[in-house]
Simulated scan of single mutants.
Amino acid sequence: MDDLSRDIIRQKYPEFKEIPSQIANGTKYMPYFKDCNGVIDDTLIDVIIHKENQLCYKGRKETPTIDVLQAYNFDLLFTYVLSGWEELAHDSHIFLNTIGNPSINFPKPPPGKYYLVDKGYLERKSYLTRYHKIRYHPSEFCGANPRGQ
């Protein structure tokens, strides 16, 4: 695994004591997300790999890909990036390994704070997934400026 966060990416406020301005100044989100640190999600990235290693990196598109887990804040800045998992690894396995392995150095939220996480992750204390019985409509968010500008 390649942990970019050890050497390159750092939390601006590692104690998570400040409420992001996008939340504090937004009537739609305050007070509901005042204790939210940010979002955790993953993405697949196409890669070039030696033929003998391609099998476990092949996904639905038949091209080799790696799974990259990332956390980002409300300024849409990365606060953590972990790359290198083969595409066959399940999202929840990557997530649990990342938050459960102290050597990975993932910035865990302090008591009372949490991250919003992808529905593919298991809900755990301090990691909130969306409620699975609610339909979310993209039209509610179209045209919304995430930076509040």
Rank of each mutant, 00 (worst) to 15 (best):
K125Q: 14
L44T: 09
Y115C: 01
K58Y: 03
M30V: 00
H132D: 13
K58E: 09
L128Q: 12
L76C: 09
V47W: 05
I8V: 15
K119S: 15
K133D: 12
E15I: 08
L69C: 05
W85F: 14
K119C: 13
Q22W: 03
E62N: 11
R135P: 01
D91A: 10
L69T: 11
V117W: 02
K113C: 09
M1H: 11
L122Y: 07
H90A: 06
L122S: 14
L44W: 03
Y127I: 04
L82Y: 07
Y136M: 05
Y13R: 11
G38V: 08
T129D: 10
L4N: 10
D35N: 15
I104K: 13
F74N: 11
A71V: 06
H137W: 00
D3K: 06
I94E: 08
F95S: 06
L88A: 13
N105Q: 14
Y57E: 04
R135F: 01
D75P: 03
L128C: 07
L55W: 00
N25R: 08
V68F: 01
I19H: 06
L55T: 06
R6G: 15
I48G: 09
P31Y: 09
H50E: 14
A24Y: 04
V117H: 07
E62K: 08
S92I: 05
I8G: 13
C142E: 14
D118P: 10
V39I: 13
D91H: 05
G84E: 10
I99H: 11
Y121N: 09
Y127G: 03
S5F: 04
E87M: 05
I23K: 05
L77S: 15
F141G: 04
N25V: 00
E123D: 12
G100S: 14
K108F: 03
I23W: 01
D41M: 00
Y29T: 06
S83N: 06
K61H: 03
N97S: 15
A144S: 11
F74T: 10
I99G: 14
H137S: 09
F106S: 13
C56V: 06
V47P: 11
Y121R: 05
I45F: 04
M30Y: 14
A24W: 02
R10T: 15
E86D: 15
F33Q: 04
Q54T: 12
Y136W: 01
K51M: 00
D35R: 03
K34Q: 14
K17A: 15
M30K: 10
W85L: 03
D118S: 11
A24M: 02
N53I: 00
L116I: 11
Y115R: 02
P31M: 07
D3L: 11
I99F: 08
N105F: 05
Y72R: 10
D42E: 07
K51R: 03
G26L: 00
L128R: 08
A71C: 10
A89M: 07
N37R: 12
K17M: 12
L122P: 15
Y72M: 11
V81F: 01
A89I: 07
P109M: 03
I48E: 13
D35P: 03
K12Y: 13
D42F: 11
D3W: 02
T27A: 05
Y127D: 07
S83T: 13
G148V: 09
I104D: 12
